[in-house]
Simulated scan of single mutants.
Amino acid sequence: MMMAGLRERKKEQTRRRISEVALRMFDERGYDAVTVNEIAEAAGVAKVTLFNYFATKECLVLDAVKDDTAAIVAGRAEGQSPIDALRAHYREMAGQGGGDMDVEALLTRIRVISSSPALLAGVYQAHAGQRYELAAALGDATKDAISAQLMAAQITGVITTLQEAFFHRLSAGVPLDEAGRLLEEEVELGFDLLEHGFSSIKGEKS
């Protein structure tokens, strides 16, 4: 067991090193200008090793931004609704206040994605794929396919908006603790809106 644990740690260290090197090179020279061969050489690994960790060049940037909402719904506790499972997951994430998050690395990733049409398209495709997977996972909680698709679209929209607001604050220089506190409040607001709709908003116009 000890050896297996050591191997896993070494694999994770190698994966992290490759990702960090790739992000630094993309940030310095631009995503399109950097080749996979250059990244492998700079990270001190063979090209085949790099592809063992990252299936494509795009994955070097986008793997870290994937969020498996379908797995959260599918793995929810018996008797727990999909919305409650997702709320609990994002409430816990927000409650960690960023933890040991490397803010500079996150901002670098955002810069790299924002400056590359190919990566922006990849983010859109990833979000679409996650939405379809979430709709499939929601299928057992709805009466028809269109209901599941509409629910998945709303959930995905709320989560994406929450993430964008959090990233924007960090980019604007808001301290991580403060950005995390605001994210906690907004997670509750977002899931209140998903669960109760506009009726959850106080101060309606008279």
Rank of each mutant, 00 (worst) to 15 (best):
T156D: 12
F54N: 00
Q96F: 07
T161D: 08
E78V: 09
E20N: 12
G98Q: 09
R17G: 02
S199T: 13
T108I: 11
L134G: 04
D84F: 03
Y90W: 12
G75T: 03
Q163H: 07
Y132E: 12
T14S: 13
P82K: 03
R24P: 01
A137N: 09
V103K: 01
S115L: 11
G173V: 00
I159A: 05
G190D: 10
E78C: 03
F26N: 04
A70L: 10
A121N: 14
Y132L: 11
Q96S: 08
G122R: 09
A94D: 03
A85Q: 08
V65F: 11
G122M: 08
A4Q: 15
D27C: 03
S171M: 08
G44L: 04
T35S: 14
E186T: 09
K47H: 06
Q80K: 06
L86E: 04
G5V: 02
A55C: 07
L50V: 00
Q13Y: 11
E12L: 03
A135M: 04
H168W: 14
R131Y: 09
G75M: 05
R7S: 15
T56L: 03
A77I: 04
A22T: 01
L162N: 06
E164T: 10
Q96P: 01
R29A: 05
S115A: 15
I155R: 03
E195G: 15
R24L: 08
V103D: 01
L107H: 05
Y31T: 00
Q130E: 12
I39M: 01
E178T: 07
I110P: 01
L60D: 02
T156R: 07
A71Y: 02
D100G: 08
R29H: 08
A172H: 12
R131L: 12
G180H: 09
V34P: 01
G203W: 09
L193C: 05
A70M: 11
E184W: 07
R87S: 00
A88D: 15
A55Y: 06
A94N: 04
T56V: 00
Q149A: 13
E58G: 01
F167W: 14
D144C: 09
L6G: 10
A105E: 15
T35I: 03
A128D: 14
Q80F: 07
V174H: 07
A172M: 14
V174L: 10
F26Y: 06
I155H: 08
K10V: 15
G197P: 00
L138S: 08
L62V: 06
A126G: 13
G99E: 04
F54T: 02
L119P: 03
H168G: 12
